[in-house]
């Protein structure tokens, strides 16, 4: 683990557009972390108290199903945010997470982030807005996957195709 400079943090998609002062405040809370491939980051149901900004590698979100192998739900990569469940009242991870490839990330304590947002509402707005955009993008992606767009189309009535 090591400290994070505002230059490093400012290169992450999540932090783009923040002012130097805001980056400085955020970088003071960030810790640079790395995980080897195969490392489990958290399990479904555990207390959710961290946000990570992924810099490299790949993390798989998964779900345990009795009598079956774990189900892969989604993968996240560089530029993505990992760990939104602390935003909910339950503050429990809804899925498990495992490093598929060696991962480097910036790690934040959710409690420290909440304190920072309470103390600086403008920064709080900026961070909340970014997390909301991420949540909406994931919701939209999930909806698109439900549509099963790549399934074989049903033959048109009277068509021969």
């Amino acid at each position: 683990m090591s400290g994070v400079s505002i230059r490093e943090l400012g290169q992450h998609a999540f932090a783009r557009g923040l002012t130097t002062r805001q980056l400085d405040a955020l970088a003071a809370l960030a810790v640079s972390v790395e995980w080897p491939a195969g490392c489990r980051l958290f399990e479904e149901g555990d207390k959710a108290a961290r946000l990570w900004l992924l810099r490299s590698g790949r993390v798989a979100l998964d779900l345990r199903v009795p009598g079956r192998e774990r189900i892969l739900v989604e993968t996240l990569g560089p530029g993505d945010e990992l760990g939104l469940s602390w935003l909910t009242s339950a503050a429990q991870w809804q899925f498990g997470a495992i490093a598929q490839l060696p991962v480097s990330a910036f790690e934040f304590s959710s409690a420290a982030l909440v304190d920072l947002c309470e103390a600086d509402h403008e920064l709080g707005y900026q961070l909340t807005r970014r997390l909301l955009v991420t949540a909406i993008a994931r919701l939209q992606a999930a909806r698109i996957r439900i549509l099963d767009l790549y399934a074989a189309p049903a033959p048109a009535a009277g068509g021969t195709a």
Binding site: A13, A60, E69, E74, T75, A141, I144, R145
Partner: peptide, 23 residues
């Protein structure tokens, strides 16, 4: 490459293709 659904034997991306653009 990304797929909409996969079992644990898949070690690639899972998700919609648009999510790869930012990466």
């Amino acid at each position: 490459v990304t797929v909409d659904r996969a079992d644990a034997s898949w070690h690639g991306n899972v998700g919609v293709v648009t999510q790869l653009i930012r990466r």
